[in-house]
């Protein structure tokens, strides 16, 4: 994705962004037997992210294009998040909407991938659409928290931390994804700064996921 650069804080942050993902994966595997079904979907997401990171970095080291991975990763990430929130929301209406959401988004990715002239621009649009949909999922979850009042201590609820991490990540990144292609042609230095901010948000997300996987199961 990015050509070799001399050392900089931005580059260090981007390289270090994989650390919380590895931490989340390690915690998830360590606590696999104690994890409820909901959080196993989360672990699957961590696994998908790690796999994508690994393949993406291998290709980058070999100076090969890796942007083609983005649509697959986006589809997988969105699918796992929808399945995760279906378990959490436990709503008949959402259960009925799930196949349409997954099928609709999947079809959109497939069609737009085949028809898109520019892969970079297409990837950014995909991420913006995904951000909006995931923010919708989070809205449903927070609404359920306020309506049902079944969680007494939010700080001990794993899904609260997952949702917080996702909210900060997608809210922060929606503008980054919107202007990512514009930035490439505008200023390399500023482009690096913006992607460093993305890396920080990415690390915050996976720190929240690590915390969620570590929290003991609520009785």
């Amino acid at each position: 994705m990015v050509a070799a650069q001399p050392f900089s804080v931005q580059l260090l942050l981007m390289k270090a962004s994989v650390a919380p993902i590895i931490l989340a994966g390690a915690i998830g595997l360590y606590r696999w037997r104690q994890l409820p079904r909901t959080l196993r979907y989360l672990l699957a997401l961590v696994g998908l992210t790690l796999l994508t990171e690994l393949v993406s970095r291998l290709l980058w080291l070999q100076h090969r294009p890796n942007l083609f991975l983005q649509p697959f990763y986006t589809a997988g990430e969105f699918g796992l998040l929808v399945l995760l929130y279906r378990q959490v929301l436990r709503s008949a209406a959402f259960d009925r909407a799930t196949p349409w959401l997954l099928g609709g988004f999947g079809t959109y990715i497939l069609v737009s991938s085949l028809l898109a002239p520019d892969l970079a621009q297409h990837s950014s649009v995909l991420r913006v659409v995904e951000s909006v949909l995931v923010l919708g999922l989070l809205g449903l979850y927070f609404r359920k928290l306020l309506n049902e009042l079944t969680v007494e201590h939010l700080e001990r609820e794993p899904m609260f931390w997952v949702s917080l991490g996702l909210l900060l990540y997608f809210l922060g990144d929606v503008h980054i994804f919107l202007f990512s292609n514009f930035l490439l042609n505008y200023s390399k230095q500023f482009n690096m700064t913006v992607w460093a901010i993305h890396a920080v948000l990415y690390m915050v997300l996976y720190c929240c996921i690590s915390l969620a996987l570590w929290l003991p199961r609520r009785k």
Binding site: L154, L168, L171, G172, H175, Y186
Partner: peptide, 30 residues
């Protein structure tokens, strides 16, 4: 370039503050 960069950074920071504010409101209200 400088004007645009400040605008984008401000937008990102604003969205993050909005998100954090929303979550704090949620926690207090809940």
């Amino acid at each position: 370039e400088v004007t645009f960069s400040w605008l984008l950074l401000s937008a990102v920071v604003l969205m993050l503050l909005l998100g954090a504010g929303l979550v704090m409101f949620l926690v207090v209200y809940q």
